[in-house]
Computed example of a mutant assay.
Amino acid sequence: MCEAHSSHARGHDHGDQQHADGHGHGHGLSAPPPSDGAAECPVMPGSTISKADAEDAGLVRDYEGQRYYLCCAACGPLFDADPAKYASVR
Rank of each mutant, 00 (worst) to 15 (best):
L70C: 04
C41G: 12
Y68Q: 09
V60W: 00
A38C: 09
C72R: 14
H19M: 09
H12M: 02
V60G: 13
H8A: 14
G11W: 00
L78I: 06
D36K: 14
Y86A: 08
M44F: 00
Y86H: 12
C75A: 05
S47G: 04
D53G: 13
R61Q: 13
Q17L: 07
S35P: 13
E64A: 13
F79A: 11
R67N: 13
Y69P: 10
L59F: 04
Q66I: 07
C75G: 01
Y86S: 12
H25A: 07
G15N: 10
G58A: 10
Y86Q: 11
G15T: 14
D56F: 02
K51Q: 09
H23V: 01
S30F: 08
L70N: 10
P42S: 03
G28Y: 00
G22H: 07
A57Y: 02
H19G: 12
G28K: 10
Y69F: 13
Y68T: 12
I49F: 01
A20S: 14
A84R: 08
V89A: 04
A52P: 08
P42W: 04
D62A: 12
K51T: 04
Q66H: 05
E3N: 11
D82Q: 06
D36H: 13
G26I: 00
D53N: 14
M1G: 13
Q17C: 11
C75S: 05
S7I: 13
